[in-house]
Design a protein around this nucleic acid. Structure first.
Lengths: 232, 232
DNA sequence: TGTTGACACATTTGATACGATCTTGCATCG
DNA sequence: CGATGCAAGATCGTATCAAATGTGTCAACA
């Protein structure tokens, strides 16, 4: 079996969106719907229905579901169909552990390597977060929170790790959106963000990692409470 | 093109009640081939060739490739084809960072929570590793090394994290297998394993995490050397 | 004579339709 | 009340066609 190891020919001059293939479109649409919580956890995903809804054939839908299974978002049972992957208590804890390990590592890295201008940018992002909390606009709060953490996580250039974190938190975020949160929770998040910023200013990696760990654990505790609440 | 009718068309029915679907079989076979390094990094994966090789149609192959893309092992370019995902220098570093963050977390957890019998089991596994190094049998060494680390990683029950680590290290392992390793490397790994065991015995989470971090960094340095060697 | 451009062919991927198989829900019968 | 069989619906796999990309050849031109 001969493998083609020729040099990668110049592909795609510049940003060439051209036409998106059907399975790509279906994949992206389904992923956003799942992460937004539009489709409930454990909800069935019948191929014919999805194909009908998006106006494509069944095969692109199958390929999209396969890819999403590879990403860990859906679960496919042979000859039975696809479901949005369940988030039982164990998986929730395990996902948060993965997120904690990765985020602490990246926060430590940020504390060690971030330039002063990066720190200033992060502080600016937190200003928006504070304002959103002041207005108690949960959509704004969540968006600002995501941007804040993603800025830290992608600073070292490791987008793979940042994507992993986003993927493992995405499902539980949808769960939080369903169940309400209160002002006390928002205030605690705010305080932790400021403590994190203070650790960055002092260039204290250990403190940054510790604060981030507490931040994750507090958040997952809230998610668990929301989860238990939906159980009944 | 007429299909060969002598091929086993009907594998349904009869002897095997729990039949694996075609796309599952193709997915598993391709995954093991890629992780074993049988297909070189960046090697093209033409659907028709794979379909012909496994005696199935093109669609199951497409679904298998989609799933492997979701897992991060394969890269698909629209209208252009699928390739085994490249491991450039950046991605290698990023993968090792992910592995380091996760493994350190799990090692710390092991040091905190492992029972005495678990520690005894781990010591027994290291005896096999030592013996393999004594014999300088690289297949045995690698197998023992994998088992040793997997025992630590899965001890807390977080198989998702352990699978992530295995996935991100799998590709670079194939790279190491191609390029040779020397006895000094094996001896250093052995020493680090024993240091890790000692930290576990002392129930010292910080030391365990630190030793594991050094272990990962040393290994990735060796992989990087191998990588640079294959570049020419 | 060497380079460049365009056209046509071959190969590969993308998508659809159709048949076969499996699961499931429901009714019927023992 | 439990087991069996039938029918409806969904999934799995193949064949086939359409679209896009890469390659090779040939001719025109400096």
């Amino acid at each position: 079996m001969i493998q083609d190891s020729s040099a990668p020919r110049k592909r795609r001059g510049g940003s060439d969106p051209k036409t998106e293939t059907s399975y790509q479109r279906v994949t992206n649409l389904l992923r956003t719907e799942i992460l937004a919580g539009d489709i409930p956890l454990g909800g069935r995903l019948t191929m014919t229905a999805i194909a009908d809804r998006f106006g494509v054939s069944v095969q692109p839908v199958r390929e999209a579901l396969q890819q999403l299974e590879g990403e860990g978002l859906v679960e496919m049972i042979p000859n039975h169909g696809a479901r949005v992957r369940q988030l039982d208590r164990n998986r929730l804890v395990h996902s948060s552990e993965i997120g904690e390990a990765l985020e602490c590592y990246l926060a430590r890295q940020f504390a060690e390597e971030a330039s002063l201008s990066s720190l200033r940018q992060l502080e600016a992002l937190q200003v928006e977060h504070d304002a959103a909390i002041e207005a108690m606009d949960w959509a704004r709060i969540d968006a600002a929170n995501r941007i804040f953490h993603r800025f830290i996580n992608t600073h070292g250039g490791n987008v793979e790790a940042a994507d992993l974190i986003a993927r493992y938190y995405g499902l539980s975020e949808g769960l939080m959106n369903k169940h309400g949160r209160d002002k006390a929770f928002a205030e605690r998040v705010r305080a932790e963000h400021h403590a994190l910023l203070e650790a960055f200013r002092r260039r204290d990696p250990e403190a940054a990692a510790r604060i981030n760990a507490e931040h994750v654990r507090g958040t997952v505790a809230a998610v668990l409470a929301a989860y238990e609440a939906t159980k009944r």
